[in-house]
């Protein structure tokens, strides 16, 4: 019996959200008195895999098949299912990413397991129960869910686990081959297009997010959002009205029907804080709100508030950020 963690790579390194999943898996294994194994696929180098020991992983199974550098659901599922069988895994841990949740859902069917996505806390195990807490109602509530099958599959919400790093611990890396056939590649992508994130930060993984709303008055003022984000090493985002009127692309829209974020710091400039927007951001640890309307509902959800015109306030924040010791 063991815990199996699926880790995703990007440009040779392991994604931050997968280091969180590895930490989570290592902690579950410790609580169960067993060991944690990771399974890695595709675009990640072996040094990075060995360093997973720092997160409590003792062994890494790596399938280096070149065809797996891009995400192919059926092939990934076959590799992970093989690793699960080989390790007799009773708990499988993923990041709650588009890839992790997709593969987790398919494995739940294949392994006849219980699946919880969007999980925010370690499981409580007593009296035969295995209860995890997950975010529901788009960030407005949490639910405790008992996973009743023999095999439990958990997709961990991003930024909800503090990554451990016990320097010097290394994992052993072993090759894994799942004998993939053409059948698993029938729905392989024709083309993968990555956004230009050079110098930028991926919104879903960001620790700091700077976000703008209609109070920014037009796309021509977005350089203020971008400049503050650059100074703070943050990702940029926007409210729904802003993406609806085309000032910013849809993939920056944060809220109930957009991307849900849970960074350490969320700075909102010129966003009033409609309930749908709050649902997408209210698990942020610290929220700063800049709005010229002192009655804006967002101030009720904020830790720090500034009443003022975003276009006048943001330059002051940029100046102060530049003066910080980095």
């Amino acid at each position: 019996m063991s815990v199996l963690v699926f880790v995703e790579g990007l440009n040779g390194e392991i994604k931050k959200s997968s280091l969180e999943a590895a930490t989570y898996g290592g902690q579950v294994a410790q609580a169960m008195g067993t060991s944690a194994t990771a399974v890695a696929i595709g675009d990640v180098n072996e040094d990075a895999l060995a360093r997973l020991g720092e997160q409590g992983i003792s062994k890494v199974l790596y399938d280096a098949d070149d065809r797996l550098k891009q995400f192919v659901a059926d092939a990934y599922v076959k590799v992970i299912a093989k690793a699960a069988q080989q390790e007799n895994a009773k708990v499988l841990v993923f990041s709650n990413s588009n890839i992790g949740a997709a593969v987790g859902s398919k494995l739940a069917v294949r392994l006849n397991g219980s699946l919880a996505t969007n999980v925010t806390e370690l499981p409580k195990m007593d009296g035969g129960n295995f209860i995890v807490t997950r975010g529901v109602f788009s960030g407005k509530a949490f639910a405790d869910v008992n996973l009743t099958s023999d095999v439990k599959i958990i997709a961990v919400k991003k930024n909800s686990t503090d990554i451990t790093s016990n320097a010097g611990n290394t994992a052993t890396v072993e090759k894994l081959s799942a004998d993939l056939t053409d059948a698993e590649f029938a729905a392989a992508p024709k083309e993968t297009v990555m956004q230009d994130t050079s110098g930028g930060v991926l919104l879903q993984e960001a620790e700091i997010v700077v976000s703008g709303g209609r109070g920014m008055k037009g796309p021509e003022n977005w350089h203020l959002i971008e400049e503050l984000a650059k100074e703070l090493g943050a990702a940029t985002a926007c409210s729904k009205p802003v993406s609806d009127i085309g000032w910013r692309p849809h993939h920056e829209h944060v809220g109930q029907t957009g991307i849900t974020v849970s960074p350490n710091l969320y700075i909102a400039a010129g966003i009033s804080g409609a309930i749908q927007h709050l649902a997408g951001v209210n698990s942020s640890k610290v929220i700063v709100v800049i709005n010229k309307d002192p009655e804006a509902p967002f101030f009720k959800a904020a830790d720090y508030g500034i009443v003022g015109d975003a276009l006048e306030v943001l330059p002051k924040l940029i100046e102060a950020a530049k003066a910080l010791d980095k």
């Binding site: 405790d144 008992n146 996973l147 209210n282």
Partner: peptide, 11 residues
Amino acid sequence: AKSEYVNYSKP
């Protein structure tokens, strides 16, 4: 079903 909702809470 393979899971049971046992309890809810709010942030």
